[in-house]
Every structure is written in structure tokens, then in C-alpha cells.
Design a protein around this nucleic acid. Structure first.
Lengths: 106, 106
DNA sequence: CTCCAATATCGAAACATTCAAATAATTCAA
DNA sequence: TTGAATTATTTGAATGTTTCGATATTGGAG
């Protein structure tokens, strides 16, 4: 399977959850620390920590340690690339994959 | 949890898989029947059928029966709405969720 | 160093997803 | 109606995800 599908799917999977999508929305206007995010949700601290790790490992969120706090922020270039990749897959293309591929190599 | 997150997450989950993402890409230039899709993949017919059902239930793909064949096509309005919803969550907002919400209602 | 606050990791239970083999259903043609 | 082609559903095993309580780690205050 082509890498673009694998990479894009990995990012999508990270945000294909209402909680994590809301976290992304909350981070869209600036960085927040774990405690601020935790206040807004009905989940335990370990659960939030796990969700942040999923977002970080997908490359969507960056973390920054400052004293006892960890601040999270969106990686806007990654999100922009994700949107562009999706746009490319959703719209018709002159060199469409459906016209040039036989059985795949997966 | 607000409905926009639930709905968006459901669609994202449907395409957060390299196979299904590739299927969407293949359908982007026009409808294809199950057999045509099957030719391009190394999966069994039941697996493809299952994946198509996931896409249909998420509202991303429409199916149309014609004789013995089922033709699948993208629902472009749903995809456009998905892209718009994502754009709204990724970019900063004047009325940001992080400034008006206390503990949630989930 | 010791304690506390903030965050991360571990371990386990519950639940969901994936995928293929077997089988069923649908449609057309003869 | 029978048979062949195409697609859908069921079943079950393997795997992955979610979430929590318990515990560990990290950094600053005293």
C-alpha cells in the first residue's frame, strides 16, 4: 500500500475520536497544559495523558515542558499537510489511481 | 460531547484505514463496482464488502445497484462538509471552545 | 533531601475492530 | 426453475482500543 495512505490514515486514526477531536479544537487557539484540558473533560488524568500521547505520536500535537507543567500545541504544518492530502484524495485527478493500477503490492 | 465531534469522528474513523482511504481515492474520479475495486486489492471479497459497508454507514459513499453489480460513488457534499468541519477545528476561532466551556456534559 | 504538585506509565478488564472462511442472498440468462 | 455471477452476511479467532486504579517519574518549594 502506498505510503501516503498509510501516513494519512495514521493521522486520521488519531483524531477519529470525539474526545481527541475536541482536544484539537481546544488547542486551535493556542497551547494549553494538561491540567487545563483535564478540567474540560470527564475523564481521569491517565486517560487524558494517553490521548495526548496518541496525538503526539501521530505528529499532530507538540509538547513542551515548562516546570511542572506540560504544554500542548497543534502542529499547524502537519494539519495543513493532512488537509491537503485529504483534498487530493477527495477530488478527481487527471492521473487517477483508478486508471493506472493493477493488483496492488500490499 | 457535542454532536459535531461525534459526527466528524465517525467519518474520520471510516477513512482512518489505508485500504479505505485508497478506495476513496479510487472513487474520486467516478463510480466503480465492487469487482473493479476488488481487482485492485489483495483482499478477499467479504473483506471488501465489509469495508464498503463501513464507508456507506459513515455517509461517505453511496451505493447503487444495477443488475448484478453494485456501483459505489463518493458523496461529495458529505466530504466537502467533512473538510469544512476539520478546517473549523484546526484554525483559531474568535469564539473558541477553550474560552467558554467548563467541565463537559459527556 | 523531602514533600507536594503535575504528568506519565503500567497492568488489567471491557469492549471494539479486523479479516477470512463459509454461507446466504440477489440478479440475470438459459 | 436451474445455474452462474456478483455482492452481502455470519461466524469466530486474533488483535487493537479504551479506560481506570495504582504506581512511577519529574520538577520546584522549603
Amino acid at each position: 500500500m502506498e505510503q501516503i495512505y498509510v501516513d494519512t490514515a495514521k493521522m486520521l486514526k488519531a483524531i477519529s475520536d470525539p474526545k481527541r477531536l475536541r482536544i484539537v479544537d481546544m488547542l486551535s487557539c493556542g497551547e494549553l497544559c494538561a491540567f487545563q484540558l483535564l478540567e474540560a473533560f470527564s475523564v481521569t488524568q491517565p486517560t487524558l495523558s494517553h490521548d495526548m500521547k496518541v496525538l503526539i505520536e501521530a505528529g499532530i500535537v507538540n509538547d513542551r515542558r515548562e516546570g511542572k507543567n506540560t504544554y500542548y500545541s497543534l502542529d499547524n504544518s502537519v494539519l495543513a499537510a493532512l488537509q491537503q492530502a485529504l483534498g487530493g484524495m477527495f477530488r478527481p485527478k487527471p492521473e487517477c489511481i483508478c486508471r493506472k493500477n493493477g493488483p496492488d503490492d500490499s
